[in-house]
Computed example of a mutant assay.
Amino acid sequence: MSTPAGAAATTATPAQWLEGARPRTLPAAVSPVVAATGVVAFTDRVNPVAALLALVVSLALQVGVNYANDYSDGIRGTDAVRVGPVRLVGSGLARPRTVRNAAFACFAVAAVAGLALVVLTGHWWLLAVGAACVLAAWYYTGGRRPYGYAGLGEVFVFVFFGLVATCGTGYVQTGTVGAALLVTAVWVGALTTAVLVANNLRDLAGDAASGKRTLATRLGDRGTRFLYAALVAVGALGLVGVALLTTPWVLLALIALVVLVKPVRAVVEGARGRDLIAVLKATGLAGLATALVSALALILA
Rank of each mutant, 00 (worst) to 15 (best):
A205V: 12
R272W: 11
A190L: 11
G90P: 07
F226N: 02
A198E: 04
F158C: 05
I255F: 15
R272P: 04
A253V: 11
I255L: 15
A7V: 06
G114D: 07
C167A: 15
P263C: 15
L288D: 03
T43Y: 12
V56E: 13
C106P: 07
F160E: 03
L204M: 06
G238E: 07
N47R: 05
T10P: 02
A291M: 10
L201D: 10
T3C: 10
R144E: 04
T166C: 14
G114K: 10
V109W: 05
T192A: 13
T13M: 14
R272S: 09
V33W: 05
V195K: 00
A131L: 14
T174V: 10
V89R: 00
V89P: 00
A230N: 11
Y139T: 15
V83T: 13
R144S: 12
K212V: 04
W249P: 02
N47S: 12
A41Y: 11
A205M: 01
G74D: 04
I75V: 15
V159W: 03
E19V: 14
V134M: 12
A278M: 05
A256W: 08
N199C: 05
L88P: 00
G287M: 07
Y139D: 06
V86R: 12
V46K: 01
A253S: 10
Y67Q: 06
A102P: 02
A131V: 15
P48G: 03
G273S: 10
L182R: 02
P48Q: 04
G38Y: 02
L231E: 01
V164P: 01
A286M: 03
V186L: 13
L292M: 11
G84D: 10
W138C: 03
V99S: 00
A185Y: 06
A194P: 03
D79F: 13
A256V: 09
F161V: 06
L182F: 15
F156H: 02
G143I: 08
T98K: 02
G74E: 01
L88T: 00
L181Y: 08
A110L: 01
L245T: 04
V264M: 10
V264Y: 10
L204V: 06
V109F: 12
G220P: 05
R272Q: 14
L285R: 10
V279W: 03
T290F: 12
A301G: 09
F226K: 06
A243F: 12
T246C: 13
S210I: 06
E19L: 15
L285V: 15
P4A: 13
L26K: 03
D221E: 12
V188Q: 03
A179Q: 09
